[in-house]
């Protein structure tokens, strides 16, 4: 990747105030992203989703985000105004969420939700936005876009819901797309279709993609680079093709936990964790 860096993050930290004292979800994460596909893998609670949300400055109310550096296309995200952030959200950096059953507004027609995303950033007329949303529905391979436009979220299937989500988040043509477990809530057969669609769209538009997942194999086959997270820290960053040459014991441990058809094992090994991985200094 010789292109200019779209996104540079250094020492990102997200801390939540809770009744039981502060909880550090992300603890000093650094990475950069060009127009490439970066995968972030890790277990539940490893801080991968919070890293994604921190980029949009949409952490929960009790969360505090700090970073030595968090720059997107020359804009300092750490102290950008809320107005600037609103102009970036959707239009420049967008995010696809996990489950369309919860991430689409239940009382608004799906087409209108897509059109809204377009209107926010272009100020287009309702009519123009409707036409664009209709085109976008076709782009995400929904047949009979005109009919689907007027459906409500509870009337569409999970796979279709996620296509609507993709259409909604890509209609303003962002530079970076964060996909937070975009296929985890879908049936396995639909998963591949949605991933293929996402792949095409990212390639066609030359976007930077951050794919957050707990599925090592999926990330390895889909991304250029893989960042492995554990306990809010980055364990290692690898070229996706070289995942199997991983050095870090945590990554090795994760890889060993995956059952394989070619080399069946009687019992999968249990991952042993080292408290030292969570230490600050490398």
């Amino acid at each position: 990747m010789t292109e200019a860096r779209l996104l540079e993050v250094e020492d990102l930290r997200v801390t939540f105030r809770t009744p039981h004292g502060p909880v550090e979800a992300v603890r000093g994460v650094s990475f950069s992203l060009g127009r490439e596909r970066l995968g972030i893998v890790g277990e539940s609670g490893s801080g991968k989703s919070q890293t994604g949300r921190a980029l949009l400055r949409l952490s929960a109310r009790n969360g505090r985000v700090s970073a030595k550096k968090m720059v997107f296309d020359g804009i300092d995200l750490t102290n950008a105004s809320e107005r600037t952030m609103r102009r970036i959200r959707g239009a420049r950096i967008s995010m696809i969420m996990q489950d369309p059953r919860y991430s689409l507004n239940p009382v608004v027609k799906v087409g209108d939700q897509i059109a809204e995303a377009y209107r926010i950033h272009t100020g287009a007329s309702a009519r123009k936005a409707r036409d664009r949303a209709m085109e976008m529905l076709e782009t995400v391979r929904i047949r009979e876009a005109g009919k689907v436009y007027d459906l409500y979220p509870h009337q569409v299937s999970g796979g279709m819901g996620q296509r609507v989500m993709i259409a909604m988040m890509l209609i303003p043509e962002p530079d970076v797309l964060i996909a937070d477990e975009p296929t985890s809530a879908l049936d396995v057969t639909v998963q591949m279709q949605v991933l293929a669609l996402l792949d095409d769209m990212v390639r066609e538009r030359g976007m930077g993609l951050v794919l957050i997942s707990h599925d090592l194999n999926l990330v390895a086959s889909f991304c250029d680079r893989v960042m492995v997270m554990y306990g809010g820290r980055v364990m290692e960053v690898l070229e996706a093709g070289r995942l199997h040459e991983a050095q870090h014991p945590y990554t090795r441990g994760l890889l060993n936990c995956l059952p394989s058809l070619e080399h069946p094992q009687h019992m999968l090994p249990v991952l042993t964790r080292d408290a030292g991985w969570l230490e600050e200094a490398r």
């Binding site: 102009r87 970036i88 959707g90 995010m95 689409l104």
Partner: peptide, 28 residues
């Protein structure tokens, strides 16, 4: 709810998030 976060991700203004998205569900 998640759809409120989704509306914010789209870049919707706080007014729109509250009245257009959340309140329509509250009204029900």
């Amino acid at each position: 709810q998640e759809y409120v976060l989704a509306a914010r991700i789209k870049g919707a203004s706080e007014f729109s998030v509250i009245w257009r998205h959340a309140f329509r569900n509250v009204l029900v």
